Simulated scan of single mutants.
Amino acid sequence: MHWTVAAPFINRLNLTQEYWLTKYVPGDRHKFAIVPRSQPLQNWHDRKSKVTGLKDWLIYWQHGMDAVKITRGGIITVFPQLPAVLGMQRRLTRKRFPIIAWLFNVGTCSTGIRCQFAKASLDNIDSFIVHTKRERDIYHEWLGIPKERFEFVPFHEKEIPITHQENTEQPFITALGSAHRDFPSFFTAVSKLNLPTVVASGKRALEGIDIPPNVQTPFGISKAECWRLSQEARINVVPLLPNSQVTAAGQVTIVEAMQMGRAVIATRCHGAEDYIQHGETGLLVEPNSVDELTQAIEMLWNNADLRNRLGQAAQRYAKDNFSCESSGAALGKILDKVADSYNTY
């Protein structure tokens, strides 16, 4: 079957270099064409608002129209905005084509008129791919869509080059990322232990929080610089703030750290437990527990054998479960199932 891929991070400038998962789908049953976004997607950390504004929705609408115009089979989307606009466009055009919504993560489930719009636009999406198991229940209850249409596939990431070694002369802890981070608890823990710490996050995530003197907070650094921090750090920590309204958070940072063979500590919430097996590929601590977080950091800081064992196991697990190859295989099975339901080859 022929599939058109519409991903917001693929635009006219990087179209020739970006192929997403298309080259990793096994076999030759499915063919792919990528329709680019008209302009680059703004970095999440640089956005002034957490919600998608009217200007962005217009860009998504045009991107969806471009996909509908060229599709010769089905459409695969990435991120939640495109399946919403495509669902509406399919209603308006009355065209019958399958839509697969990959990386369907809405952050928080809206209420009121936004919720009604979501239900109306997403009702006929054929398959939603989510990256935490709990999201299947959350979206089923929120949208009233049958649970079997939501499939869990772990978040994937391209292989990250290992260009730096752990800094053993000036060891430090690092915490990367912004979404729903529990920096107050984390800062209390590292302040108690008085350990050198580097936090690479957005200004909005740290706004109004007292920064301890042993913590550095570089802003505006590149992805490569974040990877360097992760590789040089003795411990990677992903402290998460529990919130029943939040669907998922922290998966990108966790997957990247595990791919790079780093010892990771994460809060047991928002689906982190779908990625880290406690005591085997990392450590999980309970939400809001400064004592557990402090103890976990202190234990890993002082135990090189444990850090190395967890890091090596994490890297092996990530290679088997969070790679482009594993996600491509999962996508292929989903495409087969949807194509069979449409009786199209």
Rank of each mutant, 00 (worst) to 15 (best):
W3N: 04
T4W: 01
A6Y: 02
A6G: 06
A6E: 00
A7E: 07
P8Q: 00
I10D: 01
N11E: 06
L13W: 11
N14P: 13
N14C: 04
L15D: 01
Q17E: 12
Q17I: 15
Y19V: 13
W20Y: 10
W20P: 11
K23Y: 14
K23R: 12
Y24N: 07
G27R: 03
G27H: 04
K31V: 12
R37I: 15
Q39I: 14
Q39A: 10
L41A: 14
Q42W: 09
H45V: 15
R47M: 05
L54P: 10
L54W: 15
K55F: 10
W57G: 07
A67C: 05
I70R: 09
G74K: 01
Q81F: 08
P83F: 01
P83T: 06
A84M: 08
A84N: 05
Q89T: 14
R91M: 10
L92S: 05
T93P: 06
K95H: 08
K95A: 08
F97D: 02
W102Y: 10
W102M: 11
T108W: 03
C109D: 05
C115F: 10
C115H: 14
S121K: 04
D123F: 14
N124Q: 12
D126G: 03
V130K: 00
D137W: 04
Y139H: 06
W142F: 08
L143P: 14
G144I: 08
I145D: 03
V153D: 00
P154W: 03
F155P: 05
E157C: 13
I160Y: 00
P161R: 03
I162Q: 10
Q165N: 13
E166I: 14
N167D: 11
T168M: 08
P171Q: 02
A175H: 06
L176Q: 14
F183W: 03
T188I: 12
A189R: 02
S191T: 14
P196Y: 01
A205L: 10
I209D: 03
I211G: 07
I211P: 08
I211M: 05
V215R: 04
V215E: 00
Q216F: 05
I221H: 05
S222P: 12
S222Y: 05
W227F: 13
S230G: 14
A233Q: 02
I235T: 08
N243L: 04
V246M: 00
I254V: 15
V255G: 05
E256S: 06
A257M: 09
G261V: 09
R262L: 10
A266T: 13
A266D: 00
R268A: 12
R268L: 08
C269M: 07
C269G: 11
H278M: 01
G279V: 12
E280M: 09
E280F: 11
V285W: 00
P287G: 02
A296Q: 01
L300T: 10
A304C: 11
A304D: 07
L306S: 14
Q312E: 04
A314F: 04
Q315M: 08
A318Q: 02
D320C: 13
N321P: 06
G328P: 09
A329C: 13
K333Q: 11
K333C: 04
K333F: 07
K333L: 07
L335D: 00
V338P: 01
D340R: 07
D340W: 03
